[in-house]
Design a protein around this nucleic acid. Structure first.
Lengths: 221, 221, 221, 221
DNA sequence: TATGAATGAGCCTTCATTCAT
DNA sequence: GATGAATGAAGGCTCATTCAT
């Protein structure tokens, strides 16, 4: 027999604050997963960061494994580039000068990449390799194929951009260095100086790219 | 898995599998660390891959923590670029045409990057972030500053390469996309197709860069 | 395990599934306790079988411990033999021939033992040993002492039953094999074939016993 | 706990009472499993009974589930009856008087059933229903069919035992009540008085059976 | 009456590590 | 050098229980 009889007072304590425990768990989880890896993070740590007991996590998630899909659903995928572009007015873009559009777009994308959650998600991806780099490149490919290509082609026809490379290649050469900078300097553990260095490198790359790609009408004969 | 896979040398007396247990432990360790992370890999797994018991590892290493420095000492740092260049005859380089030198250098660096151990080491770096990207970029910086810069400057003075960008920038724009390709397609778990795609992208980038950077004497009027 | 499975009564307004949640909890509990043991059954399983949440059980019972007494009160004790005999008309019994009475009694007792709930209760008793066999034998003892003994004694005086054994012993020798059959073949997890085999063995035993105990007047000289 | 209690083997030096941790684990396991059920027993308890830590158990067994097969292999199946009979000289049996043989056999079987390990194993079987009663009856069936039947038949031909029942039935009627006594009074938790009561009931049954089955030559004529 | 969220205890298991052999 | 047995710590998860709603 001996059904567990306990004298101590168990169960839920009378009072507590709410504010969506589920999301607080995910916040703590992505932070710790990004910093220590999934295997290196215990539910105990996550619970402690949230201020609850581990067993309470099971009221919101099936288990440790179920946290990853939930993190993906909440913070990823990082389609920042695409989103940013979609947010812009497509007809306005085509009429603006390329250097304005590209600078503006890059600036906004970079701003997104540097949001805390985006940096955490990037680190998580790189660490756990959940098709990590695959996932990182997919948005860019989508962008090239579906969104930017026609615009760049239009610029080419307008004589604003050099025509001796296919639009896809130009876009890739514009984005790839920025992506490397992101990985190298804008991950979750990056120091202040690294972030700053990244900004400078990005700016330098954009300047370089524009001088390469643009056909400067004013200076031309 | 197949940690022990090596070019099955037929007609050779076996039992020389001993080949220094210490090294076999490190081989198994880097493989598993790269695939599963350090925290996600147990000494039991490593021992099993080697074919010994966990406690035997302690005859060769202080403990789990001592494996990482040993792995670094054995497989890294991946100064592939620098090594490759150092391996070349410096005086010959300056006299060769840039497209030949750069193509040749890139080809050899890429070959190194695709050696199994280099791929494993890259994955380990990315996963554990041991100053991961830092470590990945350091060789390039070293290269730029100490080795390639004077050569490129010489090419500029010879009128072989455009002079409107500083040598460091040009070199960075040459290497950064290759590094991104490495991270994206040449990590340890990359599929055959990913590796192949990486090769194509790298080739395309090199072509692109040479057309950008070179001053084509033949076509010039 | 589909404890709630019942012949889906088509064309009947549902929501009468309520049928006293308390009883449905007990139904599920005895089923699971018999199958898995008390310690091996969680309140969650019981609640799931009933279609409620675990915490709802506490609206009906003090806790897990309180389920056992409630199960006893509802399904046990299995005083089947006594009940059956009490249900018969005592004066009629004495006037009937022993073979008729005993066969009839055995048949009715066996029928009771094979009711689903009786089988579940038996399995629970055996599992948890709540004075298991004690409890199983007590009704028989009661029966012997209080009810059957005088009847058998009367039969002895009438020359219907052999007198060379005390009535208590005869009754015990009649019931013990049946009880063993019950335990072996009529527990909750018994297969169809086991149940059938039990029936055959029981019948064989009854025949055997009657030939042993009866004094056959017709064949006698 | 008295886990180590066994019939002190006289005349043999104890050597080292260390006696293989593996076996001490099994001893503790069967004891606790029989008393509390498998689900109701924690590895902690077993380890504590042995005097080691729970994790040490995993050096000897795969896990909790692996203990049951090991217990079966060590303590079961309880083919006590068959073993006892096989231990006797078959030719001697046939020449002995039935009452001597049967009394002797029953006495030895009962002695076996009352060995501590046999009582523990019985309780475990009943509790966990591992084909519990099935397993309990199988030896008897085997006995009837293969060993005892020919002997009984021989006794019948010698006119020592009544011929109006098939040998199998007689044997079953001899063994079944003993088996019920075993289950009821000789399980692991039985009190001293219960055990004693069982002995008396068994003796009474044997006397009864012999008076039923034997053809008394002396009183005849 | 029933649910959802929470708790503290405990369970099974794995881990890194030690040590005698 | 290598193994088997052991340990203490920790990890993921379940459980009975509580309480506000």
């Amino acid at each position: 027999m001996e059904i567990n009889k306990r004298p101590t007072r168990l169960g839920r304590p009378p009072k507590h604050e709410d504010r969506n425990t589920r999301e607080r768990i995910l916040d703590a989880a992505i932070e710790l997963f990004a910093r220590q890896g999934i295997a290196g993070t215990s539910l105990r740590q996550i619970a402690q960061a949230v201020g609850i007991k581990e067993s309470a996590i099971y009221a919101h998630f099936e288990g440790k494994e179920a946290l990853c899909p939930a993190i993906f659903a909440r913070f990823g995928p990082p389609a920042a580039v695409v989103d940013e572009l979609l947010a812009s007015d497509s007809s306005t873009i085509a009429r603006s000068r390329p250097e304005v559009v590209l600078r503006d777009m890059a600036q906004r994308v970079i701003a997104r990449w540097n949001e805390p959650q985006a940096r955490l998600f990037l680190s998580l991806l790189l660490r756990e390799g959940m098709g990590g780099s695959e996932a990182l490149m997919r948005p860019a490919k989508q962008l090239v194929l579906d969104l930017l290509t026609p615009i760049v082609r239009q610029w080419m026809e307008q004589g604003l951009i050099r025509k001796d490379f296919p639009p896809e290649l130009l876009i890739w050469e514009f984005l790839a260095p920025l992506t490397l900078i992101r990985i190298s300097y804008w991950h979750a553990q990056a120091t202040e100086e690294e972030v700053e260095l990244g900004y400078r490198l990005a700016e330098r790359h954009i300047d370089y790219f524009l001088r390469i790609a643009l056909i400067d009408k004013t200076s031309n004969v």
